[in-house]
Design a protein around this nucleic acid. Structure first.
Lengths: 150, 150
DNA sequence: GACATCATGTAACCAGTTACATGATTAG
DNA sequence: CTAATCATGTAACTGGTTACATGATGTC
């Protein structure tokens, strides 16, 4: 699983392990949690397999930059094209048993969860607006430099 | 996870390991798959912990019947009352990357999945109708024996 | 008598987590 | 100079999977 997420992130360009963790948390964080303890060993394994390459990144810190190799891209796309799997869903599983919960707790848990989903949705919508704005600049390159805050 | 599903199934009454597997497949099968290789060791562990009791079931076969003990019921309900977790969802994860998939494959995978969900929904609706019918008999016990096909 | 199904169990393996260790760089 | 954050990594453990072994019972 994590193997393919890593490949997927690298489709956009090279990245370090630490950056991957941050990107995962802030994008698919609602339905996938990555830990460093799994991340780094997987990166090593993927490098050994030859689907990505490693380079020391500049910056003085012990930072490494991983780059997707053609073999990795191929593997990622063929994974992506597979039929959508029957996937485990702990939330639905609990709700399946909600008959055994008293009405009050049930209501409390469900609205709690609804709130969580709504705040996550707002966060993702904000990201989408930023991305849409960037795309507009790319499509109208004449505005690109004038609008840049740097 | 599986620990709590087992406790949840036993809330309805005693059952064997083999029956649990069948029940899981035909109820929460769409979002949880159990294997015998995990089921039996967990049952043993739960018995050792004292949350359920084991008895040889009649029928000649090497069949065991597991019964929920009060400690198990308590544990199950307090698990159920916990806030709904951030749970992994492989389907959403793949769809997150669907930008990298060509339009045709994407469409194919999505309608494939939609069909799967719809057929599962029909199956569960059929189950619901059966259960609703049974409930009606319990509420009108005068019809209970007359309507029984046996 | 052969084959499907019922029924339990084990061993090798795999993916991931938690907790920890280590050290460099930046911000106040 | 100190605390936060950047950055990588390891070891012990957990919760599962797959594949296999074993044998009983029902069905054609």
């Amino acid at each position: 699983m994590l193997e393919y997420i890593i490949l997927g992130l690298l489709m956009e360009g090279p990245m370090s392990g630490y950056e991957m963790k941050k990107t995962i948390d802030s994008s698919v964080g609602l339905f996938y949690r990555a830990s460093f303890g799994s991340l780094y060993p997987v990166l090593k394994r993927l490098a050994d397999k030859g689907v990505l390459s490693v380079a020391e990144a500049e910056g003085g810190r012990n930072k490494k930059e991983y780059t997707l190799l053609p073999a990795g891209k191929e593997q990622f796309v063929s994974w992506l094209a597979e039929p959508l799997p029957v996937s485990r869903n702990e939330v639905l599983l609990r709700i399946f048993f909600y008959d055994y919960l008293d009405e009050d707790t049930r209501q409390a848990r469900l609205s709690e969860y609804e709130n969580k989903l709504e705040s996550e949705m707002r966060r993702l919508q904000a990201v989408q607006e930023i991305v849409a704005g960037e795309l507009e600049h790319i499509e109208h390159p004449e505005n690109y430099f004038t609008a840049c805050p740097c």
